[in-house]
Write a protein that binds this DNA or RNA. Structure first.
Ligand SMILES: [Zn+2]
Ligand SMILES: [Zn+2]
Ligand SMILES: [Zn+2]
Ligand SMILES: [Zn+2]
Lengths: 130, 130
DNA sequence: TAACACTGTGTAATAATATAACATAATTAA
DNA sequence: TTAATTATGTTATATTATTACACAGTGTTA
């Protein structure tokens, strides 16, 4: 819980912005938005993003190269993320489904690999776009 | 089954290369390797990659921006991919696990979204790297 | 056969995403 | 209070991917 309190200025600015959006934001769109707050370079954005991902405050939507705030207290601990993505309107929602999460957490492959993280992205059409 | 026969020259060259590798290849490394075969520009590579992804001959490892040949006849039909990725040596393996696949295929969220595809990436340490 | 749609090609330019390298400052731990 | 760690600011550059345009092949269909 401590890491949450110790965010730096840049990290806070960028987390605030991402939390205000219910949809994923891209790094360079974040950069554009925070220029007025004194963040001038891509690297400043990426450094904050990487930190925020690391501590579980945001997630990267890998297939979209975009970042969304975490809405699910559990996945911060489990390093487990599940998203649904509408391929028409690009709406992204974080899913929490205990049964599915457990199934994934308990998954063992036949190679003896030790997992500490997973990311699942479902694609389809949302209700509006069907 | 027909689309498999009708690959074009560029598509064949690039699929051959990817199939010869048991690990994911990146687009610009592919470009480098196929220059001697007359493929000169990134776009030629990306066009072939996109087509090969579309017909299920290869998959994109989203978290790595890399492409690997499909080893699993079923996922071509199901648009369903599961990979394990070692975060130390970057070894990537396509997983086929019927129970897990069924569970994912049958998953219904509470928003009435209609899924036609999913991608799951497990991260951890392989046996060698533990 | 001609018109058309569709898919692919080749090339050049450029956009979008992300990191390296360096000097410095702030924070924490011993 | 030294040392280690983490973050900053800046410039430059690397990596990944697409736009735009002119044209060629293939298959339909009128
Ligand atoms: Zn989350
Ligand atoms: Zn939608
Ligand atoms: Zn496959
Ligand atoms: Zn490994």
């Amino acid at each position: 819980m401590q890491k949450q309190e110790t965010l730096t200025k840049n990290q806070k600015i960028i987390l605030d912005l991402i939390e205000k959006s219910d949809q994923p934001l891209k790094a360079y769109s974040i950069l554009f938005d925070v220029k007025k707050k004194g963040i001038n370079a891509p690297l400043q954005v990426y450094r904050a993003l990487n930190k925020l991902v690391k501590i579980g405050k945001i997630h990267k939507i890998e297939s979209r190269n975009a970042f969304i705030a975490c809405k699910n207290s559990k996945c911060q601990i489990a390093n487990a993320t599940i998203f649904s993505i509408c391929e028409s309107c690009e709406d992204v929602t974080e899913i929490h489904d205990n049964k599915l999460s457990e199934h994934l957490r308990d998954f063992k492959d036949n190679k003896g690999m030790k997992y500490n993280k997973y990311n699942l992205e479902f694609f389809g059409l949302c209700k509006k776009c069907v």
